[in-house]
Amino acid sequence: MSAVLLGWAVLMAQFLLAAATGCVAVRLLRGPRAQDRVLALDTLYLIAAMLLLVFGIRTGSPHYFEAALLIALLGFVSTAALAKFLMRGEVIE
């Protein structure tokens, strides 16, 4: 009983996160400006970390946790670097 319930919940959560990835990907491709794309990329990192945690629950293996931690860390570093680039990269000084 509880296995069936949890199985459906995990499937549904994966579906919702996949749909969220789709929405974010549309924003990433459409822009219109560079800051919109960077924001979409940051959201994509976050959703990927959540998706890995859900995968961990689905397989019952604790190893996905480390991947989620790494993705959360990389998301921060890359977004900070890109934001810095937006400030300084295209400006004629």
Binding site: V10, A13, Q14, A20, C23, V54
Partner: peptide, 12 residues
């Protein structure tokens, strides 16, 4: 799980 992924979806 449903609440968390639902919120992520609404955010997207």
């Amino acid at each position: 799980l449903l609440l968390g992924s639902g919120l992520a979806f609404i955010g997207a």
